[in-house]
Design a protein around this nucleic acid. Sequence first.
DNA 1: TCCGATGTAGAATGGTTGCTCTACTTGCGC
DNA 2: GCGCAAGTAGAGCAACCATTCTACATCGGA
Lengths: 175, 175
Amino acid sequence: MSDMMVKISAGLERAFARRGFAEPSVEDLRDAAGVSLRTLYKYTPSRSQMVLAALEHRHQRYLERVFTDLPQESGEALDTILSRVGEWMVSETSHGCLFHAAVAAYPASLPLRDLLEGHKAEVAKKAAVACGIPEKGIELLVLIEGLTQVWSLQGPRALDAAKLLGRALLDRHES
Amino acid sequence: MSDMMVKISAGLERAFARRGFAEPSVEDLRDAAGVSLRTLYKYTPSRSQMVLAALEHRHQRYLERVFTDLPQESGEALDTILSRVGEWMVSETSHGCLFHAAVAAYPASLPLRDLLEGHKAEVAKKAAVACGIPEKGIELLVLIEGLTQVWSLQGPRALDAAKLLGRALLDRHES
DNA sequence: TCCGATGTAGAATGGTTGCTCTACTTGCGC
DNA sequence: GCGCAAGTAGAGCAACCATTCTACATCGGA
């Protein structure tokens, strides 16, 4: 992927995360991307493709931030993953998951739905592998999604709650 | 609240749930509400107030559907709540939580944020009381939110996962 | 030096939007 | 029957939007 494409995607991601999908006009998006309107349309030929580009960029960043350099032991790995999700929520000042927000804004868009599914599937799989319980991906996804949603309401208390649930899950799994 | 207001709110809720917050124009909303444009603007004098009216209506319906006639015993109560959330997701064909979707679409709107917080606080409290663990409202909220988000990806498997996590939580609480 | 690719700035366009207004109808108490 | 409150239908409007187009700048390689 070209430098220009990365620059544009990053700018678009920032704009949609900050202002949502309904409000920003294409001119706002151009400002956020820091390029001319013509260049913006060259790389992302419609507003809906701007949304897709932003989400693809976020996907990469999210995986890198949450799932790199995890500890070996199951419990520690899960705690680290959940803590990283909390840190992500802080540094991105995001309200819930951007992928779900995009799908909710444009429920009719199939490529968007596909992107969401792919993203979540990869999150579930990576979490399950890291925690050594490859058959419990969905449980872990419920935890991560719950944490992501509740964080915006309760902040760090949501993290404590998710960790407690995580420990309960692992304990039960061992015995 | 007048009959007309209820009719309009119900129609608006249906429209936003089906088509998201970005797509439907005010004329679409008028069609969904089944009234004239003039009447629509009389009861909800701006598009943003149409969003608020829709969410208030949904709040009522959700509480009634999920939290009425629950069994006494803690485990059964939690299972019932989670099952009802699953049924809700089916019958509403909704993609995640409509409140989160609205806030994600218009992150700058304070009244919307307040509505979301009030809604979730009431859900957490009702769930905690029904399950007999009044200090574990946030854990239950994480569970419910996680289920709501993952249902749209995994369907009933999300319900099984949430129930498993719920049982693990209650077991740990008892011992 | 000239060319073509790639960028910028921003005007033009045509369709849509949120919202208001006028004109007409209906139901109901007196 | 009359008046009035509350509804419908839909035309009109200024603003805005996504998208395209024109005109110009930059620059690495033949």
